[in-house]
Structure formats: C-alpha cells, structure tokens
C-alpha cells in the first residue's frame, strides 16, 4: 500500500474582487476562491504570491455571511508589501483553512468580552459576526478595542453595526488627535469599564503579544477562569500544517494545535515565552 499523495503545498487560485484601503498600512482584500470551502472564525489561510512567498493571514469574514473571503492585511514585510500592490482582478494563491479556530459553544448563556488590539480585530470580527448570528444564545456581548491612533481604527462600519445590534463597544487609542473625544491609553486601562461579569465571562483576546500578555494577567486578576480566556497566537509559519517547524513551541504547533489557545494552555505549555 502506497501512501496517498496530496497537493498539500499547492496553493489554489483565488481572485481579488475588491481592495479597500483601511488605514495607511492596512488593506482589506475581498477574494473569491475557485473552490469554496467552509471555515471557522479564528482559522487562517496561507496566502501565497508566486515569486514573493507565503504568509499566514487570519480570515476576517464569517462563513455563510457572504460568498467571498475577506482578508485584512497589514503591510509589515516583503510578502505583505507585495500583496498590497494587488488590484481587483489579480490572482492570489490560498491554502487552508488551517488551525483549530474559535469555539463559542462553551460560552453559551454567558457574557462574552472581546478584547482586540490593532490588526487583531480581524479574526475577532469573524467571531463577533458568528456570535451575532445567534445573539440570543449569549448574555452580554462587549468589545474593548485599542488602536494606535484614531485613524488606525479598523472596521468602523462594522463596529457601528455591532453597537446597533446591542454590543457594548469601548474604543481607546494610544495617541489622541484633535478630533478624538474618546478614551486614550492601552486596553487594560479600560477593561474595568466593561459591565460583563468577569467571573463567569468568556473572553476572546487578539492583538500584539505584549497586549495579549497584559490582558491575560488583567482578566485573570479580575477572576475570569484561565480556561475561559481565549486568544490567538501569531508565529513565523511556512507551511501551516505542522511540518516546517517554525511555529513549534514547547511541544505544540501554533498552526495545527492553535492558533487559538486558552490562557490555561498557554501557561501549561509555556507558549507565550517563545
């Protein structure tokens, strides 16, 4: 018996159907894959551009809402810069979806707190829209979202919509500008304003590593059980399927065992140290 061969590393074609400039260095790409597939919030795609390389990008859209897939991409390295130069009509390669994704089953009948920082709002957006599909299954739903400056706030339209649907949203910025009347400072300074019952709530956290670490500690000190603090980790990845080894940390592959982990797991496997 010979092992079946797969085209594990062959990206499939997707067409860019729209590009939206979100901030000076973030763009939203709406892409239509040749073959549609199911995916969960928190899962990611390996986005590929021949000649430039591949990068893991978490999916910002929600399955079943629209046919196209939305990818919110910040320009940080050579590959993302190349992706940023794409226009609608261009081809892009995708592999996936990979990763475990978020699960909201355990959060049913409880309060949910979303904490996002910067581009970390992208996977949360997918999750929030998923949760809002069955809003009645959950109690209070709140979002604390921190950005560098007011002009770096992503998905403002969605945020307005969420608020209309009853999500309590707390926005904060690191640096105010003249028009900004809202909060300033890092997210942990504003988590306390949330009205969720911390002891019973489920928290979903997504953002830069430093922020995640601070939020985890903060929520834990407010009594949120460590198993209920859920976040997605980022890592250098080349394959997305647990082979290339780059995201391997203390016995776990961020790509296949994660990228979604609970604070409990993170402590147990010592993941955020690496």
């Amino acid at each position: 018996m010979k092992e079946r061969l797969t085209d594990l590393y062959l990206p499939s074609k997707a067409k860019v159907i729209d590009v939206v400039d979100m901030t000076s260095d973030v763009k939203l790409f709406k892409v239509m894959p040749e073959k549609t597939f199911k995916y969960k919030p928190g899962q990611f795609l390996m986005v590929s551009l021949w000649g430039e390389g591949e990068v893991p990008i978490s999916i910002a859209s929600t399955y079943g809402v629209r046919e196209e897939i939305e990818l919110c991409i910040k320009r940080v390295g050579p590959v993302t810069s190349a992706i940023h130069s794409l226009k609608s009509g261009d081809d892009i390669g995708i592999r996936g979806p990979f990763g475990n994704g978020f699960s909201v089953n355990r959060a049913k009948n409880r309060d949910i707190l979303f904490v996002g920082g910067g581009i970390g709002i992208a996977p949360l957006r997918s999750l929030i829209n998923e949760v809002l599909k069955n809003k009645k299954d959950f109690k209070k739903i709140e979002l604390v979202y921190g950005s560098r400056t007011p002009s770096d706030i992503l998905f403002m339209d969605d945020i307005n919509l969420w608020q209309k649907k009853g999500v309590n949203v707390i926005l904060t910025v690191d640096r105010k500008d003249r028009g900004w009347r809202g909060n300033a400072g890092i997210v942990t300074e504003h988590i306390g304003k949330s009205r969720v019952s911390f002891k019973n709530a489920h928290a979903f956290v997504c953002g830069p590593q430093v922020m995640i670490n601070a939020v985890m500690r903060d929520l834990s000190s407010r009594g949120t059980p460590e198993g209920n603090i859920i976040m997605t980790l980022e890592a250098h990845m080349k394959c997305g399927v647990g082979k290339c080894g780059h995201c391997y940390a203390d016995g776990k592959y961020i790509c296949t065992d994660g990228p979604v982990f609970s604070y409990k797991e993170i402590k147990q496997f010592n993941l955020n140290g690496v």
Binding site: W50, G53, C239, C244
Partner: peptide, 25 residues
C-alpha cells in the same frame, strides 16, 4: 530534524521556482 524553510526565487517578473531548504531552530 525535520524543519524546513520555503523560499521563492524569481527568474523573471513572472517565472520562478518555490523551493524548500533545511532550516534550523
């Protein structure tokens, strides 16, 4: 040891190869 890196090499604007190479932690 199983780790590898993936690299794209362009021969021209539209042609090239994607290769993988041993990598190390």
């Amino acid at each position: 040891c199983t780790c590898f890196n993936v690299i794209d090499r362009k021969y021209s604007e539209t042609e090239g190869i994607r290769i993988r190479e041993w990598d190390t932690c």
